[in-house]
Design a protein around this nucleic acid. Structure first.
Lengths: 204, 204, 204, 204
DNA sequence: GATGAATGAGGATTCATTCAT
DNA sequence: TATGAATGAATCCTCATTCAT
């Protein structure tokens, strides 16, 4: 009996995730407004009504398809490993981010939608804005340190941080290439350039 | 009589442009699917039916709101003035582009939509793809020249060109700041970093 | 001046007729509801607004496209030449009618519409009903005479008259053949059978 | 549970039929274009949206309102009982057909629309055309046999068959009388005349 | 009169949400 | 909870009619 409940519970959770991921994928490809619940249900292989058993409304489903992965990946973005020098730290960081960008096209497309149509999703936008600030707060000290150590050219570290984030967003917008593609590793070099590496601290 | 026809003609064209610009603005803010023709009509101060006198369908209106400004600005993007050194040329270029990005938020948001939901707008996406290639073809020689003259670090010039475009797109996605804001001029420096300027050829 | 006015007058009348005939043709092919004024104008080669200069409304145009030819051809249908014997009279009649049916597809299709959707065109239907009665009143005496003379089998002459009219309508419904087609002459024989010709008075 | 599903299934099917029959009735009275889905829904006592749950589109609903009764009654029209003599067979046939014509005004009005506006419903028209040919193929042998046995006057049997069908169509066009009306039985005599019965084989 | 742009009521269709089973 | 039919508000688009030129 306990096992049954557990199993049901697990299955319950799995079904919810299945719906959520399918929704994320479809919302990202087709956009919020043009994606229908019927499509999501069909694509996820669940019944139409089930979607509403697990999510209160279409909007709630959209929100979750942004907020849950955001929550899951926040720490990865914000709590990065520090190496001996800032340049090493940043380069390691970029590799991780680029990998993430390459692998999470759907998630980033949803972020793009929220940013582009911020008037439609004000609370989600605010959430992203908060994340942006947290990210700047985490990255700036490293940049500053690098500038002080002469590894990076001088300049407003906040500007560097935001242009770096914009660059990542823009990349994912422009490219539909699959994760394994060499483009993504090549782009780490370009991303690093935004930090203004001085001679001797460029990409090896 | 001729004057009357002329005047009517002019007014006719102005009304069309009014609708087109209103549409561009609303499409960019709210997205294609969530923008209604009724909103566009009301916002432009014309009747609902008038929109359909000037544009065959909602889709046609959307297409024109991308294609017409694209056509108008293509040459500005592709035929840039060449200065004595590549670095000067590129820096001048960036200033022009950044000014354009700052001033044409609506246009760029529509481009973002088309790129993000390319499956929904295949012919528009193709058009943008063509533009992208033309832009690379125009920019690469300058980058190569700069690399040969030692002004820019080496690296695939196509990669530089595309990351530059992605950066511009990403910037306009991330920021809602008005044209005059200092952010845009500050960002020219960041954009220039993507070209990998060597010591002595950085931003002045 | 007088000539100019006359010419203008003639041209005016011709233009009106052009519109009317085009309308008749399109109404008959596409049906009243599915035919648009714009189509009529384009097909007639006149400006859109002209249609409303000559006819008060779409409905008025439809009505005229039935009533005018009806008025013009009424006498032909009702005042037929009498020959020596009823059978000759009827056979001559049928030839004329069949010729008319073959040549006036559009007109008959409009009649069919009015009859079929009588609730939509009550006054037009009434007009046709009146014509039907007049036709019966004109034809019955001939039929009776023929029956008395032993040329036609006995039977309610009204029944014969109405079945004859129904037959003509049904024919024009079923066939799209052009006027010259042999079908129409062949059908005169079938039409004559409805009168119940006795041996020796059949079609020669 | 099975019973519930069965009941639901039945009710589902009944609702579909209710919509279909209401649609058939309204389409026949008002014509395809002038009949609105809202009217059909209201008249059938179902919600507006329900119509679209059961039928893909207005056009599909119209098609079904012709094709389903056509399919159901095809065999009745084509597979007739043969009596000892062709004249008996034909007279029995006519009684059945006339009964059908009297009872199925709506169905026949829809057929009339499709024939009259064949350009708008090409596939439906083709279907009717096929039926027409099948009917001729079935009827001609009987007529021929009757002609050989001297019961019917000579003449192209195809002509007889098609004029007979045209007559039925024309009848239903001209009369709005209810099924029980004496007109319909009286008309069997007229219909029989089209076969050219020779003396001694006329209507009893 | 002639023209064709302007208007908005009306209609087909979609789809989120509700709800009975 | 699972299902999918029922609902009707919302939206695109058409087109008769009006009207300014």
């Amino acid at each position: 009996m306990a096992r049954t409940a557990e199993k049901r519970e697990r299955s319950h959770h799995e079904k919810r995730n299945l719906i959520l991921q399918t929704a994320q994928s479809l919302f990202s490809e087709t956009g919020y407004a043009a994606t229908t619940i019927a499509e999501i249900a069909k694509s996820a292989g669940v019944s139409f009504g089930s979607v509403f058993s697990y999510f209160e409304s279409k909007e709630a489903l959209f929100k979750q398809s942004l907020l849950e992965p955001l929550e899951q990946n926040k720490s990865m973005f914000l709590r990065f490993t520090t190496f001996e020098t800032p340049s090493e730290t940043v380069q390691a960081l970029i590799r991780i981010h680029m990998e993430f960008v390459a692998r999470n096209a759907a998630f980033l497309r949803i972020i793009q939608q929220v940013i582009a149509q911020r008037a439609q999703f004000p609370d989600l936008f605010e959430e992203l804005d908060r994340f942006n600030h947290e990210f700047q707060d985490a990255l700036c000290p490293i940049i500053l340190q690098g500038q002080e150590m002469g590894e990076f050219s001088s300049g407003d570290p906040n500007l560097v941080a935001t242009s770096y984030l914009s660059f990542l967003l823009g990349l994912r917008l422009a490219y539909a290439d699959p994760p394994g593609h060499s483009l993504w590793s090549a782009m780490t070099v370009m991303a690093y350039r935004l930090f203004g590496p001085t001679a001797g601290h460029g990409e090896a």
